[in-house]
Amino acid sequence: MMALLLTATVGAAGLSSARADPADGNDPVAKILARPLFSPSRRPAHDPETPVTATPVLTGMTREGTALTALLRLPDQPKVFRAREGQNFSGWKVTALSATSATLERDGQSVTLHLDFRHAPPP
């Protein structure tokens, strides 16, 4: 029993001395926490302000009074983001919204996304 206690104490001391400095970017705990546990890809969550090359997918629209909000996501990410006209999403600027579409612009390129009702459940 005494040997086991001594081993646990030495192991804990070794762990604390081997821990990386978080300031140098090699902290293993920070790396583990950056990867979502329940995401199939285990890739870090995407920041909506960080540009990516993929064209977003329009998953829905909401209306609050006269204000429309687009529900957008990236093709490889399950998380849905909300964006109103004039806001940025993943490097794209939302320039126009209607009840069933959203127009986005990036680097002089314009794309209009439409809601796809083909797979919607019946009312």
Rank of each mutant, 00 (worst) to 15 (best):
M2I: 12
M2T: 12
M2L: 15
L6S: 05
T7S: 10
T7I: 12
A8I: 04
T9S: 10
T9C: 11
V10N: 01
G11P: 02
A12T: 06
A13F: 01
G14Q: 08
L15C: 10
L15P: 06
S16P: 07
S16R: 14
S17G: 11
P22E: 12
D24I: 07
G25L: 11
D27F: 10
D27S: 12
K31S: 06
K31W: 07
I32D: 09
I32C: 05
I32L: 10
A34L: 07
R35S: 03
L37E: 00
L37I: 00
L37F: 02
F38N: 02
F38V: 03
S39W: 03
P40D: 03
S41V: 01
S41M: 04
P44S: 12
D47G: 03
D47L: 13
P48F: 04
P48E: 06
E49S: 11
T50A: 11
P51V: 08
V52K: 02
T53G: 09
A54E: 05
T55S: 00
P56H: 10
P56A: 08
P56N: 07
T59N: 06
G60E: 09
G60P: 09
R63E: 15
E64F: 15
G65F: 13
T66L: 15
A67W: 13
L68R: 04
T69N: 04
A70F: 09
A70W: 08
L71P: 01
L71D: 08
L72N: 03
L72T: 08
R73S: 02
R73F: 04
R73C: 04
L74S: 10
P78C: 07
K79G: 04
V80K: 02
F81R: 02
F81L: 05
A83C: 14
A83G: 09
A83W: 09
R84L: 11
E85Y: 02
E85I: 09
E85S: 04
N88V: 15
F89H: 10
S90V: 11
G91D: 05
G91F: 09
W92N: 02
W92C: 09
V94L: 14
V94Y: 01
V94M: 07
T95L: 15
A96N: 06
A96E: 12
L97D: 05
S98I: 08
S98R: 09
T100H: 13
S101H: 07
A102R: 00
T103Y: 06
R106C: 08
R106E: 01
D107F: 10
S110P: 00
S110W: 13
V111G: 01
V111C: 04
V111I: 13
T112M: 09
H114N: 13
H114V: 03
L115Y: 06
D116W: 10
F117Q: 14
F117L: 11
F117Y: 14
R118C: 05
R118P: 08
R118M: 13
H119A: 14
A120T: 13
P123V: 12
